[in-house]
């Protein structure tokens, strides 16, 4: 009887072992299947894209950040349209509107591609199974840089106009110069001078910000140089060159202002006329101040850009590239030393 008990115990232990193994296996298969929406009731919808950026079958579909399904199939229907087959949980389908849009994204910086379904407006009816939704174009870094370029062009134009105005004042053309020639202004000379001083101080502050901007851009030369050959780089280049023009114009502006002040000091007839119009001086002052603020902002923007590029440097993907660059630099240095 003892022997029989032993084999029975063995059989029970074996059964426990086998059941444990099989249930682990089934659990694993179930969990994986669950992730791929293989079980439970699902519905099929379609999304059209121009560019799927390497989306693969099995990638997740999210609605409001929640996983609601997976990509089941990808096929081309014509030269510019790709239709993606999506399997969506039935209960999630009850919340997606007909005008919802699909957008491609990545799971983390270098993770898998995902499809985000962006909610549509509420007055439109709910999506049915087998319906098709459209997609957003993906916003890229290129788009962001081209917007920045336009901003800079505008700033350049602004300073150019300002330059024209000051020049006109100097050469005594138009209303402002007429006002300057007016003899009734003499009494307020002192006040005007004070305002001019303030203006000069602001201008110098502005110049120093300008300087900072240029310096920070200069520092980034290596960073920008990296992107030398791409479209992005060209855009960045034009941004910088615009900023340069702006700076040059600014210099001329300041020089002109200087001349104006000198003449006022020298007591040509102009002093009298000028001192009579405080508001004009104030206006110039505020305009210079606002220009200063603009430049300050630009400077901050450039510092941020620099930070971004710095962050990019630390990003794992570009890291190797930057390291290589540094190494090359070092090599060049060594060569020069030799």
């Amino acid at each position: 009887m003892k022997a029989l008990d032993k084999t029975t115990a063995q059989k029970i232990k074996l059964a426990i072992f086998v059941i444990a193994g099989l249930s682990l296996f089934i659990l694993g298969v179930y969990l994986i299947g669950n992730q791929q929406s293989m079980f439970g009731s699902n519905a099929r919808i379609f999304a059209t894209f121009n560019n799927i950026n390497g989306l693969k079958i099995g990638n997740n579909v999210r609605y409001g950040g929640l996983n609601v399904g997976t990509v089941k199939g990808i096929r081309m229907v014509n030269d510019s349209t790709i239709v993606v087959d999506l399997t969506i949980k039935k209960d999630a389908l009850g919340y997606i509107r007909k005008n919802a849009k699909a957008a491609l994204g990545t799971d983390g910086l270098v993770g898998n591609m995902i499809i985000n379904i962006v909610p549509g407006s509420e007055e439109i009816g709910l999506l049915n199974a087998e319906d098709t939704i459209h997609s957003y174009r993906r916003i890229t870094t290129e788009d962001m840089l081209s917007t920045l370029n336009v901003t800079n062009e505008n700033a350049a134009m602004l300073t150019a106009d300002l330059l024209k105005i000051t020049r006109a004042i100097n050469s005594g053309e138009g209303t402002i110069s007429y006002l300057l020639k007016d003899s009734t202004m003499a009494l307020n000379l002192e006040q005007s001078i004070r305002y001019f001083r303030q203006t000069a101080a602001s201008t110098s502050k502005m110049i120093s910000h300008m300087d900072d901007l240029i310096v920070s851009l200069n520092n980034k030369n290596n960073v920008i140089g990296l992107l030398r050959d791409s479209v992005t780089a060209n855009q960045l280049k034009s941004v910088v060159s615009n900023l340069e023009t702006t700076g040059n114009d600014m210099n001329k502006l300041v020089a002109n202002l200087n001349a104006t002040v000198t003449r006022a000091k020298e007591g040509d007839g102009a002093i009298n006329y000028l001192s009579n119009d405080k508001s004009l001086v104030k206006k110039i002052d505020t305009s210079v101040n606002s220009l200063d603020a603009t430049l300050h902002n630009l400077n901050e923007a450039s510092i941020k850009l620099n930070e971004n590029l710095e962050a990019l440097k630390h990003n794992i993907l570009f890291r190797g590239y930057f390291k290589k660059l540094e190494k090359e630099k070092e090599k060049q240095l060594e060569k020069e030393i030799k």
Partner: peptide, 14 residues
């Protein structure tokens, strides 16, 4: 941890 593990696995692995 385990939801991360299983989300990265496919039948093609198991």
């Amino acid at each position: 941890y385990f939801s991360e593990v299983f989300s990265s696995l496919e039948f093609g692995d198991v």
